[in-house]
Structures are given as structure tokens and as C-alpha cells.
Design a protein around this nucleic acid. Sequence first.
DNA 1: TTCGACGCTTGACATTTATCAATTATAGGG
DNA 2: CCCTATAATTGATAAATGTCAAGCGTCGAA
Lengths: 236, 236
Amino acid sequence: MTIRVTDEEAAEIRSLELFSGLDDAHFAALMRGAYVQNFPPLIELISEGETSDFLHVVISGSVELFASWNGRETTMATVEPVATFILAATIRNAPYLMSARTLEKSRIVLVPSEDVRAIFDVEPTFARAVVGELANAYRRVVKNTKNLKLRTSLERLANYFIYRSEAAGGVASFDLGIEKRRLASYLGMTPENLSRALRQIQPYGVEVEGSHVTLTNIDELRQFAKPTHLIDDPFG
Amino acid sequence: MTIRVTDEEAAEIRSLELFSGLDDAHFAALMRGAYVQNFPPLIELISEGETSDFLHVVISGSVELFASWNGRETTMATVEPVATFILAATIRNAPYLMSARTLEKSRIVLVPSEDVRAIFDVEPTFARAVVGELANAYRRVVKNTKNLKLRTSLERLANYFIYRSEAAGGVASFDLGIEKRRLASYLGMTPENLSRALRQIQPYGVEVEGSHVTLTNIDELRQFAKPTHLIDDPFG
DNA sequence: TTCGACGCTTGACATTTATCAATTATAGGG
DNA sequence: CCCTATAATTGATAAATGTCAAGCGTCGAA
């Protein structure tokens, strides 16, 4: 069941930095070939190793990027609206390095990779926007690597909580918004160890009740976590 | 002691995919502002957190990219001639996420970041080349993350040896060409553990004598390492 | 040639992390 | 509202990895 992109959705997509500089004609051309699809939860949208047919844009819901090897699996990232994923594979016309599945009921726009590459070739503004997007994506992964190699799992967890608190506007209390087993995988640990880490971190003023987190002593937590924008700022 | 870029060096730089599509005038403009410098071993060229003043091109020697946090340090990559590094920071005009130091006597070309950004803004061909380069860099880091999260240190070592063997043309014998402690750090382990891993891996037909490696049973090693181009191919 | 610095290796031990098994909580479908 | 599937937790144990200390080897400078 595939349908066309509505004007409202097109406007949302257009608001992305990636597309905002594109002139009307080219943007319309992109949207003409694109279509929207609603997916139920836990549908695998793409599988690593496949070649890139579509650039994906998450309009609502959320999508998990994950990777597998030798029977093991790990969460690489979660994509929230409104954002694109697998841009690099689309541009390079290379096989996906990650798989993607919906986490909840999600609305996804599929833009044919060919169209993206075609406009990329003739429209310098778009090419520059793609550079910005890729440079950001690259820097985010580098930070992730530093996080994994330089910190213990407890330190990663502490910094994750600080990040979440700041991302929500500096609040002391927030909902996880992600299953703990997926958070564990994202942070590079097992669910069992996340459970134990949640207790180990209590002395630093972290209270977890179900999926709700309250930071009662952010100063102490920061002192332990030692966050730095060279690792923990997803932009910058 | 800084000097201008020789014609020969300019030709080498030009042969990089990143610059090959650039027209003569713009390339000449880039080289006019650039200069070459010879560095002794173990000189820190850039430090993470600094803002990006130059795009660096390694002409000879080799450069280690590394990152630090809280007194710990890890090797992120080594750059061999002829290649650029810190392109993403240059383009984004953002602080370096990694530090860089020469590993041996090295010849480095420094291209002012401003010049790179200026040409990037007016020259679509160059913008597209930058996209290709960044997409590659991004995919390489994603593979590295998969390597770290999905494999044990012994598996990473095994795959590293297979990669090195293939990169040298499918040979069974090669020199490490990197200090073991740096290899250990790159692979995400301590030097002590690398020493032990080198013995653990012997049953799979790996003989290490000093810095020389001989693979006597590549089939068996591959069976253990389970390499895949979705992790181990630095391109593709 | 000798000396000293430093990288590498080894052993003993500590810590971190994973695995396995069992139990408890939780959320969605009938 | 209950039932059931599945997530989360907990304890016991194992495996992987790191730390510390000592000794060995190698290479370059005096």
C-alpha cells in the first residue's frame, strides 16, 4: 500500500537542512518519484548488504539502525523524525552497512536513490547540503568510537543520562523512551549489565523507576561522567 | 621552516580522487596558499578541540590519529601517503575531534581551511568530490564501530591479519609496519593483551616473529575470523 | 662497545563484562 | 480482567580484558 507524499509532508521534508536549499523544481522532482508508506512496528525496512534503492526519511515513529555479524547483533543508532538515514550508501550507490527496522508504527518516505544521485549531480546547492550532512554523520560516528574505546560501560551510561537531560532542555527528570535492552545494545553492553549499572550509578544521584529517570544530583553525576563536547555533543 | 609546494608534490596531490576533478585555476589557487613542512617523528600536528586551520595532506611518512579522554588515549587510525586527514572538521569549520602526530619523519602539505571552503563553495565538482571522500570516511568509521561492538579482541586481530595479507596482494607473509602497542590501541586492547592474543592465535596458523607475520593456514584463519566486506573492506 | 631507555613479554591478580538460569515485572490480546 | 509472551532483574559463575610488576630484548647514543 503505497501512496504519494502529501503537501504537508513535503513541507516537513523540505524543512530538513538537507533539502532546504534546493530550488522548487528539483525538490518537486524528488517528491514526484517518492512515496510514503506506513509500517507497523518491528518491520525490517532494509538489510545490511543490500544495495541502496531508496533514501529513507522518517516522518513519524522511530527507526532502529542495527548491524549483525556471526549471530550477534548490535544497535548502532535510532532515527527520530524528521531525519533521513543511509545517505552515504545512497550517494555512493554502495551496499548498506546497517539494517533498519521500525520500533513503532512509523511513516516513512522513500526517495529513489537514482533521483537523489541525479539531482546531486546537477545541483551544486544540494551537493553542498549533502556534504554538511555527511560531515555531521561522520563526526557523530567518530565521537561514538571515542565513547566506546575510552570509557567503561558505566561511564557511557552516566554520560548518556547527562546528554538526555540536556537534550530535553536541562531537565532533571525524563522518560527513557527506548527499551532497556536496546539502550544496553546501543551503549555496548548486555541487558543484564545495564540492570546492574543502573544500581551502580545510584550513588551519583540517579533514580530509575521503570522507564523514568530522575537525576537528583547532576553536579555529582557530571563529576563522575566528565562529559565533553568532543564526545557527547551530537553536533558541534 | 616552511616552503612552497613543488610541482612534483602538487602532481601527487592532484592525483588524489579528492582533487583530480578540480580545474587547473582552482587547483593552482589552492596550492598557492599551501605550504609543505617536514616534521620529525612524534610531533603533534594538531590537538583535538582546536579549530581547523588547515587541511593536511600526508606526502611521505605516516601520521597517527588519536583521541584522549580523562587521561586515557586511543589510536583511531593511521594515515599513509598520499591521503588527507581532518577533512570533515575543515569543511564544517568545527573543532578537531582527533589529535594527530607523526609516527616517522614526514612531509605534510598544509592547505588553509579557508581556501578549501572557498573553493568548495564555488566549484561544484570539488563539492561532489568532497562528498565521495566523506561518504567513504563515514562508512569506514561505521565498519570500525561494528568491528568493536560485534567482535572480541581476538577476532579483531584475526581479521586484521587477513586484511593486511589481502591488502599486500594476498601474500602469506608481511611486516607489521606499526608498533605493537599502537596496533593494540587501534584494535581496542592493551599491549599486554595483544601479546597474549598473538599466542592464542597461533593454532590458526599465525606465526609472529618480532614484527614479521606469517600466515601458514589462511583457510583455518578465515574460518575463525569470518571476515566480511561489510566490516573488513575499507572501501566497498 | 657499553649503557640506558623503552618496547615487548610474561605471570599473578583484579576488574569488567558476559553468560546461564531462575524469578519477577509489565504490557498487550482475548 | 486475566493470561501469556516478553522484558527486566537478580544471583551465580565464567570468560574476557585490564593492571601491576618484573624481566627480557633491542636499538641508538655516548
